[in-house]
Design a protein around this nucleic acid. Structure first.
Length: 430
RNA sequence: GGGGGGUUACCGAAGCGGUCAAACGGGGCAGACUGUAAAUCUGCUGGCUAUGCCUUCGCAGGUUCGAAUCCUGCACCCCCCA
């Protein structure tokens, strides 16, 4: 199976600039392909995952991927898909974000494999040196305003349609596409990059780059877009109530990351397996069949979570996520030490108390619940315990008179309290 | 400027002198069921040193043995007539 037909089967192709010829062109010899990443956040998130995975597939097929972080374009703000003017970041923030992202990307792309090693570049390096006048003369000259105005990203912000509510856009954002277009030309010249990949919202920017290259260098470059990753209910993939799902372990722990995928709806999981994992067509089809037969087993979700957690957080991250999952969903907690517990419960709030509280008759469970933040008042704690909703080390507490003693420690100094199904808190007795 | 109605717990909304920590619905929390889903069902839902005590029905006073309930003033909101 060719790369392109595999991408097509996986649902990763939304549009191409050359539906007929692209496949042959890619098979002919190794090509160089680039995709851009937005550095306005401090970490890559699930939204950028798709781009990394697409580049990865190109690399696996023998092509050379270039990941471009938009140090320059990030200062401007891409108007595509946005309904309002963006806030600009400082140079310093951007530089920090760019550095952090490079680190994360090395997990997806191989930067040291000879001819088709991946490259990571920052467009600030070639955009930064331009002076305004030179840029206008050499680049801006090639952009007909009527063509720019016709782009969806611009049209939607200008609201040509009757009665449309719009916020307008600044000249700065309007200029965005010139910068990204020039990126493509630059990468063509420096790396021989002839293909740009991007999310479907990047179509306008990609074609702008192709047009510019044709005018400036008389070459025919190519573009391909992947569809936006959305859920069956129409909302964006990778968002939770508490915000985006990040790829950095500091912002989204391996456990939380794993849990996100475990909880993907039945309706969405098949598409995720296709688009995001390296599983073969046979494996995915057999998972689809298994899901059809018994969705309750959730093999697809489990597999998806495993594959992606391993990809992003390696085997160790997956191991921790799995162990945490076992414990978070019932297993009684024992035979663990402080370090293991701290790792497993990294996301859980904890409170340090004096060891002496455990002396004498012990520490009343009701107070412990309040201290741990699992109950707002002792009255609330009383109710929870009374209804059988309180657990110490995942063992149900029976009786509001229960007092905690050193017997209840799960490890050297830690006790794991839980309210309801999955609200946890740690108490550390030092 | 005149007349009328309103302001109740997280939200909506009953209550109109004691039996009111305040019906009911939503939300939230917990339990059962389940696939870590959805739906459903059950219980709880001001605080405490707890068979009692304290704080809470817009704000401030007053009447009364006793007020969310009656009176006076103040604030905000809504409606009608000018």
């Amino acid at each position: 199976m060719t790369l392109l037909s595999d991408l097509r089967w996986r649902g990763l192709v939304h549009q191409t600039t050359d539906d007929a010829g692209l496949e042959g062109w890619l098979e002919e010899r190794p090509r160089t392909v680039y995709a851009g990443f937005d550095p306005t956040a401090e970490s890559l998130h699930v939204g950028s995952l798709l781009g990394l995975i697409v580049l990865r597939r190109f690399q696996q097929a023998g092509h050379k991927p270039i990941a471009v972080v938009g140090g320059a374009t990030g200062m401007i703000g891409d108007p595509s898909g946005k309904s309002a003017e963006r806030n600009l970041l400082s140079k310093e923030d951007l530089a920090r974000n760019v550095a952090a992202m490079g680190q994360q990307m090395s997990q997806f792309l191989d930067f040291e494999c000879g001819d088709n090693s991946a490259a990571l570049v920052n467009n600030f390096d070639w955009v930064g040196p331009w002076s305004y006048l030179e840029f206008l003369r050499d680049i801006g000259k090639n952009f007909p305003v009527n063509v720019m105005l016709a782009k969806d990203s611009v049209k939607s912000r200008l609201g040509r349609n009757e009665g449309e509510q719009v916020d307008g856009m600044s000249y700065t954002e309007f200029s965005y596409m010139l910068l990204q277009a020039y990126d493509f030309v630059h990468l063509y010249e420096k790396y021989g990059c002839e293909l740009q990949a991007g999310g479907s919202d990047q179509w306008g920017n990609i074609t702008a780059g192709i047009d510019l290259a044709r005018r400036m260098r008389s070459v025919q470059l190519r573009g391909i877009t992947w569809p936006l990753l959305t859920k069956s209910d129409g909302t964006k993939m990778g968002k939770t109530e508490s915000g985006a799902v990040w790829l950095s372990a500091e912002k989204t722990s391996p456990y939380q990351f794993y849990q996100y995928w475990i909880n993907v709806d039945d309706a969405d999981v098949g598409g995720c397996l296709q688009m995001l994992t390296d599983l073969s067509r046979e494996e995915i089809e057999s998972l689809d069949a298994a899901r059809e037969a018994d969705a309750g087993k959730r093999e697809s979700q489990r597999r998806l979570a495993e594959e992606l957690t391993r990809l992003v957080h390696q085997d160790q991250g997956l191991a921790v996520a799995r162990q945490a999952t076992n414990i978070f969903f019932g297993a009684e907690i024992s035979d663990l030490d402080d370090d293991q517990l701290s790792q497993i419960f990294a996301d859980v709030p904890s409170k340090v108390l004096s060891r002496s509280a455990l002396g004498g008759d012990g520490f009343p469970i009701l107070e412990a619940m309040v201290e741990a933040g699992l109950a707002k008042s002792k009255g609330e704690a009383r109710r929870t315990v009374g209804q059988g909703g309180a657990y110490v080390n995942n063992r149900r507490v029976d009786g509001i008179e229960t007092c905690l003693t050193s017997e209840h420690l799960a490890s050297e100094t830690v006790m794991v309290l839980r309210s309801g199904k999955k609200k946890y808190a740690l108490l550390r007795f030092l």
